[in-house]
Design a protein around this nucleic acid. Sequence first.
DNA 1: TGAAAAAGTTCGTCATGCCGAAAAAAATAC
DNA 2: GTATTTTTTTCGGCATGACGAACTTTTTCA
Lengths: 252, 252
Amino acid sequence: MVINEALSASLEDYLEAIFHIIAEKQAARAKDISKRLKVGGSSVTGALRSLAEKGLINYAPYDLITLTPKGRAVAEDVVRRHEALRDFFVNVLTIEEKEADEAACRMEHAIPKTILERLIQFAEFVEVCPRGGSKWIAGFQYHCDHGSTQQTCERCISLILEELRKKKTQGGQKPMAVVNLKDLKPGQKAKVVKIKARGDTNRRIVEMGVTPGALIEVERVAPLGDPVDVKVKGYHLSLRKAEAEGIDVEII
Amino acid sequence: MVINEALSASLEDYLEAIFHIIAEKQAARAKDISKRLKVGGSSVTGALRSLAEKGLINYAPYDLITLTPKGRAVAEDVVRRHEALRDFFVNVLTIEEKEADEAACRMEHAIPKTILERLIQFAEFVEVCPRGGSKWIAGFQYHCDHGSTQQTCERCISLILEELRKKKTQGGQKPMAVVNLKDLKPGQKAKVVKIKARGDTNRRIVEMGVTPGALIEVERVAPLGDPVDVKVKGYHLSLRKAEAEGIDVEII
DNA sequence: TGAAAAAGTTCGTCATGCCGAAAAAAATAC
DNA sequence: GTATTTTTTTCGGCATGACGAACTTTTTCA
């Protein structure tokens, strides 16, 4: 078992495919992989041997394929890169979903860690900052389609004024639209306003990257509200009900 | 001579290296390439044969290496991808130059055309839009370092107010800081305000992508102001003096 | 001008990653 | 419970792209 060798783009693709297949079914089979990656069966066998040798998958000839803990960690890292790129393309560059996904698939193997982190922070910043937001992205769209001129810039500025006025009349005494994380529905995005939890729970929440100002997206809420699956800084987290209740957010 | 086959990442690297070496000296030699790409001499020979076969370089054993027109076009395309990524990393994500360059080097081979164009437009929009600009990027930096909280957001909003006030007092009757493109110094960036030129000159200018609202960066001005080398939408252009004089800009 | 040095090429090798054909194993059907 | 189908593996082959060693050409310089 070879340890800690950097994976090739190809092997990252295989690992990512296995990760997604396992998320849908219980375990992956060679056929699923070959269908998903559009490669011949014999190529899959070779890749599986390679991944098993590196200790990333549990695999023996003719056997089902599962991820080792190490393999799961690496796969989650690949998926995080993929999603970060795709989300940036879709949410900031307003690229169409399918095309964004394909581009992310190709670029995910080449993006270095530091750039990735920055990109995730930037995409978050665009959504969270009052100077950014969906209105601004719409302005970017307009700029792309018509080219911005003096007039459109003035329109843009008046938009900011409007937003400021709204803030001023609503806010003041109490920040508006602050709710508890547990009350969000899947798909909703929010800005973390305050961590109410204290002690150990507080520590755990902050360690996961949930800090005031951060963007948080609810992915799934289990029947009784426990656990709540969220995405923060590109990471998929599963929060206990007690943890979710300790987080106040402002819906975006 | 094989035509129109997609280049591998490796061959793109060779072509890019040749392009840069030729920009510095008159022609490239195998040694320059092997030094620049850190590969053995024998690998270079193979790559050169491959590029010559595809009609991208002029090459015969032991001879100097130059680009064919087709090869130059492809090389310029690779360089444009590289620079677009690097500029985005440096100007928007505030990544340090050297790191941005290395990342661009790896990612340039994987970015699809549509995403590239959008990214270039976005980087331009960030610099040109009043809601963006260097102040906003500084705000992003702050967000990265400290995490934005309610207070920093209010600071951000007051910054917009300040900017608005400045615009209001200065502007009104006449747009401020409008100068002619020919008066810019190398390194300066500006927003195109108006194309004064008429007829054929106007058409040529617009065809090159120089339109009101676009970002233009001066790279080099020849002794007598002819030509003026600029960068617009990722393209390096060489403007005749008459063309430069027909363009009014607002320095950013 | 004629060595010595430098640059460039050829050749054999290796690793990766894909493929198709054929063989082997497992699953399914009757 | 065997026969057929499906899945998986093995094997040989091919393309790319890198390398080192040995050889050839060009350049340098004495």
